[in-house]
Design a protein around this nucleic acid. Structure first.
Length: 424
RNA sequence: GGAGAGAUGACCGAGUGGCCGAAGGUGCAUGAUUGGAAAUCAUGUGUAGGUGCAAGCCUACCGAGGGUUCGAAUCCCUCUCUCUCCGCCA
């Protein structure tokens, strides 16, 4: 969320950000709502001031003055009751529009529409060239009985699955590997609630625009989170943090739920796009300083890369263009792992800086050493998301007979097993 | 799920209709005192919005929302959260 004063003074900058992020918000509508709201506040404050004056005068008034004042008080009360709905309506509209104002992308973010406009930063690792016909993860996982495909689709619907046997063990293994790496690098592991109130979704920027993406538990007015970023950031909602507490670095572990409402018919094969997955997410709160945030951003990116390195998965890092970064993000790097079955680098990690966007929305304050109040910056990045990460893991480490040679770092997490042999 | 208690400023805590943004205490800050500290004394110490060049002024906020009243921290209703006991349960 941007500050209204900033929006008023930099309307063109905000308009440009709206256009570059491919949003449809009409800024003039917001500025109009702001004007209406401020006019209403002005008119109402005058009446309220008079109300308070009268209320203070009455106890001191003489018998004769009293009825006159009470009469005026009634009149003022009527005026207030007439003005309040005007303000309320203006405020509702204003609040609604404010939640749709994007943060301003940082200058280095390339302007563009879609994925094709993302800028590749680097490629790491070498794509394997296979001397045999490589299988995709669906074939491999089927050979290894790592997944039950059909059962869940009957009782849980499309895009559902059950990891079984070594498939399930692999998820536990990569998850634990990621946790250990992050903890060794100073992050605090958190297992947060995954059912949250609307304000957590709004506070982190996923609502209102992403409402269709979330599962709602209507009976209890709760929502299933699509990432532990939501509860981890919300952990400090309404708090005032001390500057000395920062940076706060969390590693969240949670199931994640996504309706994939806008992706019907897309990526339907296999486990690339599913409704439920497990993710270890990194979340950082830091001082509102671009240099500090930049350092944290690249540290988070480095953590993700270290995990891919341990898993011996070739990947590339791209700087997402304006059309591909979210409402609140000011900069996003995508880490795309090489997936031979798709013959493409595909997103497995997403590293974002959000500036004070989430802090403002979630009302996370920061007490600076000089006593002043500020808003901390927040950042996040995937550490590992499974089963998606199993796709490059299995596909890149397969042999001709379908067996999987596990990367060294993963072996201890698989009880010393080095090679997984297919069941059939 | 049932019964009860509660929610006031950084913290503790008073306040059951009017001059209460809120007593008192603690903490914190500044100053005085001191060789220095403690103690003591004095002063100050919330957030947000509106307006103004500024000093300031006005408004809102005593868990949240609504109601009664000329006037609500205080009365009424709804909700949320916390605690205690009972029940159920991994």
């Amino acid at each position: 969320m941007l500050e209204i004063a900033f929006i008023r003074q930099n309307a063109d900058v905000v308009r440009q950000a709206i256009a570059n992020k491919r949003l449809s918000l009409d800024l003039d509508e917001l500025l109009g709502a702001d004007k209406t709201r401020r006019d209403a506040i002005g008119a109402l404050d005058v009446k309220r001031a008079r109300k308070n004056q009268i209320a203070a005068l009455i106890p001191k008034a003489t018998k004769e003055e009293r009825p006159v004042l009470i009469e005026e008080g009634k009149q003022v009360k009527a005026d207030i009751e007439r003005l309040e709905p005007v303000l309320k309506e203006a405020t509702l509209k204003y609040d609604d529009l404010m939640l749709k104002v994007p943060s301003i992308p940082r200058p280095e973010v390339p302007i563009g529409k879609g994925e094709e406009d993302n800028v590749e930063i680097r490629k790491v690792g070498t794509k394997r060239s296979f001397s045999f016909k490589a299988r995709d993860h669906v074939e491999l996982m089927t050979m290894h009985a790592m997944v039950n495909w059909d059962g869940p689709r009957k009782f849980a619907g499309g895009r559902s699955y059950a990891l079984t046997g070594t498939g399930a063990l692999l998820e536990v293994a990569v998850t634990r590997l990621a946790i250990d790496l992050l903890v060794s690098r100073g992050l605090t592991l958190v297992i947060p609630p995954v059912m949250v109130k609307e304000k957590a979704m709004t506070g982190t920027g996923f609502f209102p625009l992403g409402r269709e993406e979330a599962y709602a538990i209507t009976a209890d007015e709760l929502y299933l989170v699509g990432t532990s970023e939501v509860p981890l950031v919300s952990l400090h909602a309404e708090d005032t943090l001390e500057a000395s507490q920062l940076p706060i670095r969390y590693a969240g572990m949670s199931p994640c739920f996504r309706r994939e409402a806008g992706a019907h018919g897309k990526d339907t094969r296999g486990l690339y796009r599913v409704h439920q997955f497990t993710k270890i997410e990194q979340v950082v709160f830091c001082l509102p300083d671009e240099a500090v945030a930049e350092k944290e951003h690249y540290t988070l990116l480095g953590n993700a890369e270290a995990i891919l390195e341990q898993l011996e998965i070739p990947y590339r890092v791209a700087l997402a263009c304006t059309g591909e970064i979210g409402l609140g993000q000011t900069r996003k790097h995508e880490v795309e792992s090489w997936m031979p079955g798709r013959d493409a680098y595909s997103e497995t990690h997403s590293c974002s800086t959000l500036g004070d966007f989430q802090a403002r929305r979630s009302n996370i304050r920061l007490r600076m050493p000089d006593g002043s109040l500020a808003w901390p910056y927040t950042l996040n990045n995937t550490a590992i998301a499974s089963p998606r990460i199993l796709i490059p893991l299995l596909e890149n480490h397969q042999s001709e007979d379908g067996s999987i040679t596990l990367p060294k770092a993963l072996v201890p997490y698989m009880n010393g097993v080095e090679v997984l042999k297919p069941k059939s």
